Simulated assay, not measured.
Amino acid sequence: MTTTSTVQNGILLIRLSGDLIGSPDTDQLLQTVNNHLGEDLTHCAIDLSEIRYINSTGIGVLVSLLTKFRSRGGELVLINPADHPKKMLAITKLNNIFTVAADEATARQQLTPAAL
């Protein structure tokens, strides 16, 4: 899995590609977020459009990150989950817990009022 991250207007944007199935990928994602949390960020968008496969470990990490941001008074938005991640979110009923945006612009819109 590859991970890229940027911060713009107080929102951490993480783009993932490949498979989100456990170490070292999940460790890398958690480390990326933890590095940015030192910057007092409370809002995050994770682009899942290029994730081919996600398992229970990957889902667990997403839940952990959601909890981390919400406990700081922030929010996490998932961007355009590909087919398999979308099915996994539906099977686990987590599609009712996560905010899902169709694209990056929509995610930023959903997070910006909260960030101000």
Rank of each mutant, 00 (worst) to 15 (best):
R70H: 12
V100D: 03
L65M: 10
L78V: 10
L65N: 03
A82D: 12
P85Y: 13
S71A: 14
L76T: 07
T92I: 03
A90W: 07
H84E: 15
I97Y: 11
K87N: 12
I97M: 10
F69E: 01
R72H: 15
T67V: 09
F69Q: 06
F69G: 01
F98W: 07
V100R: 00
I79H: 02
L94V: 03
R70L: 09
L94C: 12
N80F: 08
P81A: 04
N95E: 14
A90S: 15
G73D: 09
N80Y: 07
G73W: 06
N96I: 02
K93Q: 14
S64L: 09
N96E: 15
F98D: 00
K86Y: 06
P81W: 06
T67Y: 07
I97N: 07
N95M: 08
I91N: 02
P81C: 12
I97F: 09
L65I: 10
K68L: 15
I79G: 03
L65V: 05
K93A: 12
N96L: 13
E75W: 06
I91P: 11
L78F: 11
A82G: 09
P85E: 14
I97T: 10
R70C: 07
A90G: 02
I97Q: 13
L89Y: 03
A82W: 08
L94G: 04
I79D: 05
T99C: 02
K86V: 02
M88D: 00
M88C: 13
A90Q: 12
P85L: 11
L89K: 01
N80K: 11
P81H: 10
I79A: 09
I91H: 03
N80P: 11
P81D: 08
T99S: 11
V77Q: 00
T99K: 01
L94F: 04
V100P: 03
A90P: 02
P85Q: 05
N80G: 06
N96G: 11
V100K: 04
S64V: 02
L65A: 10
A82H: 14
M88E: 08
P85D: 14
D83P: 01
L94W: 03
K68P: 00
T67H: 04
K93T: 12
P81M: 09
K87D: 15
T99Y: 01
S64T: 14
F98A: 01
L78Q: 08
F69Y: 14
M88S: 08
T67L: 06
D83G: 04
K93E: 15
N95G: 12
L89D: 01
K86G: 04
I79E: 02
S71G: 09
M88P: 00
R72F: 11
A90T: 12
M88Q: 11
N95Y: 07
K87V: 09
E75R: 05
N95W: 05
K68I: 00
